[in-house]
Design a protein around this nucleic acid. Structure first.
Lengths: 160, 160
DNA sequence: TACCATGTTGATTCATTTAGTCGACAATAT
DNA sequence: ATATTGTCGACTAAATGAATCAACATGGTA
């Protein structure tokens, strides 16, 4: 149940793009440098986002990628689906026909509840919200400067 | 973000055990046959559940596995954690120290929300509930017999 | 026009994980 | 004793993940 680097790097790249978007497109090179992702790998991560019409790309000098929709309209669910494929934790939730136990398996219900729970979070989060969160974090990080640096990690989740 | 066969087979095996538990232990061979899991593979799946003291095993003739706790006290979260390891979709949620962006990364918040959402479902589901659900499904499947067999698949999730 | 900066695509590599098998062994009932 | 069952570690094969690279397409700029 782990996210691959596609999901992790891809979302970070998209957030980075949103944070650095003015009018002109943002070169992959810049995103790669800021996010510490290798450029040739990032190119592959970006492809499905272009195909999914979340961003568009412009070749040539001063080229790069830019958002096709305003950040409030970009939901994380859509992004993750493009980067990672289906969100469902098991296949049979999506394709009931491949499971011989279809309709008589109590586990499938639970797997689908998990799918819905995950979708709920992703559906309810827009790129705009991520941008705001990120800006806020960086601002409060600057205000922090002196003193107890370690105070950031307030509460650690006990749970896995 | 897919569950491996460990999680899928393991939970099915445990549910099968709960459904077929009387006083005597249930041989792995029977579970393997009913659930269509290869016996040598099932042996490996069962190991962490024994280690986690959810079930115990008895060797020798008439041996097998049996539940160590009553089904109402066995939460799916515990089972999945034993079978699949941490539920968190990314490592940095559990070990913030391995992430250079710790405390200043908006994505981490989201990944943790997802972890919580998944935990919520798993924490809130006991083996007893699964048993009841499963019995109910099988009962209604028997009452079905004649007529429109296909009526089972009422609503199909559009969403991934 | 020539050239440089950029994105596109497919092939390829390498490491890791997953899924599964097998054999030797330990324990228990009959 | 012996048949039956679980335990454990080694092993293998296939799939996936994480990249890298080269050849190409395209758009600015001198």
């Amino acid at each position: 149940m782990k996210l691959s680097t596609r999901g992790r790097y891809g979302t970070r790249a998209l957030l980075d793009l949103a944070l650095h978007s003015d009018e002109s497109p943002v070169p992959l090179k810049d995103i790669a440098r800021r996010q510490q992702i290798s450029l040739p790998y990032l190119e592959h991560l970006v492809t499905p986002l272009v195909a999914g019409e979340i961003i568009r790309s412009i070749r040539g000098a001063h080229g790069g990628i830019s958002l096709l929709k305003s950040p409030e309209k970009i939901r994380l669910s859509e992004v993750i689906r493009l980067l990672e494929g289906s969100i469902a934790p098991v296949e049979c939730v999506i394709h009931p026909d491949i499971c011989p136990r279809v309709g008589s398996c109590a586990m499938c219900d639970i797997w689908d509840e998990i799918r819905k729970a995950i979708c709920g979070v992703l559906e309810g989060t827009t790129l705009q919200e991520l941008v705001e969160r990120q800006r806020q974090k960086e601002a409060s990080r600057n205000g922090e400067t002196l003193g107890s640096e370690g105070a950031v990690r307030a509460e650690q989740p006990k749970d896995t």
